[in-house]
Design a protein around this nucleic acid. Sequence first.
DNA 1: GACTTTTATATGTCTGACAATTGATTTTGA
DNA 2: TCAAAATCAATTGTCAGACATATAAAAGTC
Lengths: 242, 242
Amino acid sequence: MKNSSTPQGDLSAQIAGSIRDAIIAGDLIVDARLPSEAELAEQFKVSRPTVREALKRLAAQALIRTQRGATGGAFVNHLKYPDAYAQQITTSTLLLSMNEVSIATACEARFALERACTRLSAERRSADHLATMRAEMFRQSQPGLSDEAFCASDVAFHRALVDGAQNPVMSYQLAGAVEAMQPLMNMITFTARSREKIVALHGQIADALEAQNATDADAALTELEAYTISLAKDVLDARARR
Amino acid sequence: MKNSSTPQGDLSAQIAGSIRDAIIAGDLIVDARLPSEAELAEQFKVSRPTVREALKRLAAQALIRTQRGATGGAFVNHLKYPDAYAQQITTSTLLLSMNEVSIATACEARFALERACTRLSAERRSADHLATMRAEMFRQSQPGLSDEAFCASDVAFHRALVDGAQNPVMSYQLAGAVEAMQPLMNMITFTARSREKIVALHGQIADALEAQNATDADAALTELEAYTISLAKDVLDARARR
DNA sequence: GACTTTTATATGTCTGACAATTGATTTTGA
DNA sequence: TCAAAATCAATTGTCAGACATATAAAAGTC
């Protein structure tokens, strides 16, 4: 194995790695119960606290879940989409906040990926997806809405767009791209005028998807991208001058 | 806070969550040193092993790193792209293997996202990216190459395509989509004939990118998607008949 | 037979200790 | 005086053993 040849890191990291490999390789199938902590300690010839640290590492990645009691133990977790979403979003958010990614770069990536969904979404979106978009647009046009709520609604709108493609793998991949942008978006305080324009573009997107016109949706998304970047630029310039 | 209102899970999970929140909120900046385990134990009114379990959870997500010795301790980690890639790939791989995702769905998502890169990649790809693609194509055309090596080279080719867009956020997002497919792709044993066709399509893609012709690259990718799905279908049908 | 109690087994947590690592400090020696 | 060596102190890594707690199954009771 790779790990045994280069035993790196703590014992708990090594043990976690070896169990992780077993799960990924399929040696441990979903819902299989791992040996008890005491047994693992014996197998790996370490103490129970060390085993526990290893198990916590795996639990942090949602690879296992633990249960107390007589028939308890550690079980290989069925990694579900919501868990994967959450991880993706955390990682993406931190990645953006720690790597001096320009808003332009992040926007470019986000909208490029989102446009990858439009063709499918135009074809397959359900009435539910359209209704969600309309509802979020309505919320966005309410005066007195806080910037945070506006951004949250924006995310919900775009998620509906992505989910319209009816491809869960794609929804998962996009979750990180869309949601991780929210902190960056929150930095842009939206004027009434800019909100109006954004909602108008959302309207164009929703109309195009309803008409199953992917080309128009693409164009509106592209315009929204340009507008978002120009808004961000204004805010940053204003700050620089201060 | 959300966590304090609904204290969920183990103590170690709660502590990990509260430190994680502090990192995400920016209260703890990169390279900041956390209090020592003993001090954290005192602050949270738990024992050191419990604190350690919490820290291991964070370490598993690459949020902190630890260092032994006099000036050691736990430090907020600068989350770098490779770390984020690795996490994304692990999560994506498990997600695909555990959720009965059809090869068609996974392929659709992957190629749709990849096509999102072609326009940028056609515009910006460097000579290095083109050289990498050519080199991988050469490797792929060598007879006697194992299926695993062929797939690995395939991944390398497509990563070069994605990296050509010169947008690190996009490369990160695509890493999961492309690499997580490898186990699925490994299931398809490639005949000499099918390899030949794949390499030919790779050639079309590389040529189009070199000529900065995104449309042709898109078309070749679409053809590759259709061909990949048809190959997978053949393999699955053959298995079903057995 | 249905309900209650007991019991066994597992994880969750604590205490206290020692080993290993490593930067800083002090001592030593030329 | 300055550099090398020895020592120190702080911190994480690991261990052993114990108790608390949760939970399902088994045993007991009416």
